[in-house]
Write a protein that binds this DNA or RNA. Structure first.
Lengths: 146, 146
DNA sequence: CTATAATCAGTTGCACACAATCAAATTTTG
DNA sequence: CAAAATTTGATTGTGTGCAACTGATTATAG
């Protein structure tokens, strides 16, 4: 009756930890770039959705970003305070709150446009690796959505 | 002089976002399992290091987990309050604080041992994909450490 | 040996994340 | 139509993350 094997508990053998560490590290790298346009990372990905769709409900935004209203509500109020978005109830369904870009929010897109390329440089992956990573992460998300 | 191209700003073309979303989703999946042993995810990865090393300084722990003292100090105080670890200053260097497992912290390892396998099932990747993912994330972290 | 620099944990303040709960509006059902 | 269930965003409380700063201790340069 020897010592049981704890290899699966080695930090090195974890799958989640490098994901978690990598994600935080990239966000840390984003910070100085995002500071320049006065956005946090979470605000930035919310703006990404708005730049694509012009206007979305909080619900839809939450689905896109996998975030709930407890995170989004205060964040959207800050974006509104900065004059980047507007928030108003839907006339069709008063429960829904429609978030839309202002002119100022719209024009911020131009300043954000160089950001992705600057970020790509520092991760140091080649095109194939990026492809693989993207595919695997997509598969994981699909598996976990059930 | 047409509309400039904003493809790089599409949420779908982001590399960081799926990493960030995936990481949070896995941690969400961990939660019910970790609740059973009364640990949060961050507390869990701190315990992983302690189960490997028996005792570490806060500084070393921070290096392992890429977390700073602002995150670790309150977290370690909670683990201490639960009776899983002890915290004492190093005699050799009074600036360093040594974190060590208690008997109770040690024995929690047995209950944690089934956790990784349960998690592996729900991510739904095959062995090769896990390998690839692991390799790519390690490479990214190395690139970014400079 | 002493003034200066570096190291380390702790504290503070801000910004998420998210579970749990709530309240208002809408949809479904009998 | 009216009661019940569902949907939706807001609120509250807990737990991170992290930058900036503090204070104590140790290392180092002159």
């Amino acid at each position: 009756m020897g010592e049981p094997c704890y290899d699966s508990l080695l930090l090195e053998n974890q799958l989640c930890f490098p994901l978690y560490a990598c994600s935080r590290e990239i966000i840390r790298r984003y910070k100085p770039l995002l500071d320049a346009i006065d956005l946090t990372y979470t605000q930035y990905i919310a703006m990404l959705v708005l730049w694509e769709r012009q206007s979305v409900t909080v619900k839809e935004l939450g689905c896109c970003l996998f975030l709930d209203s407890g995170t989004l509500t205060p964040l959207l109020k800050k974006l509104e305070a900065k004059g980047l978005i507007t928030r108003r109830r839907s006339e069709a369904d008063e429960r829904s709150l429609i978030v839309a870009l202002t002119q100022r929010g719209q024009s911020l897109r131009e300043q954000a446009a160089q950001l992705p390329e600057q970020m790509c440089q520092c991760v140091g992956l080649d095109a194939e690796e990026k492809q693989q990573l993207s595919r695997i992460l997509r598969k994981m998300m699909e598996q976990m959505q059930r």
